[in-house]
Amino acid sequence: MAVSTRRLQKELTEIKTNGTPVGIKLLQADNFESWFLSIEVLGDTLYQGEVFALKFRFDSQYPISAPAVQFVVDDYYKAPVHPHVYSNGHICASILGSEGWSPVLSVISVCITLQSMLAFAKERKRPPDNDGYVIRARAPENPKKTRFVYHDDEV
């Protein structure tokens, strides 16, 4: 059995047995290639009342390699307006890159990190290079193929 399958089965069992942390819901996990979860930030924050969906994609080397994670952008879900989130849903967060990812992290720990990234946001705006990255269609389909320059060290 692939390493990724073994690990994801454990994560799924853990979620089904103990549930998810507050504000995080499992939307879909019916295979070991991609999962969908929703996150919302509770309390008095810039994103009060908004629910966002995250798409996780795993290769066979997960959790040794990081999952590809992005916010879902479709008719129903939008990417949060945040200085580290591009309007196409790509996220610039160091834990999702090879620099910051570690095999002890999990789907849920990524959700928690992104939740706190939103909770501590000081203003609703896009990254300064959003138009260049998204609109001129230079963004690869998979955010793992982008070498992000992290805008600050807070995430």
């Binding site: 390699s65 090879s98 620099e99 910051g100 990812w101 570690s102 095999p103």
Partner: peptide
Amino acid sequence: CENFVEPCG
């Protein structure tokens, strides 16, 4: 540990 020991590579 988080940045220079645990991550592969």
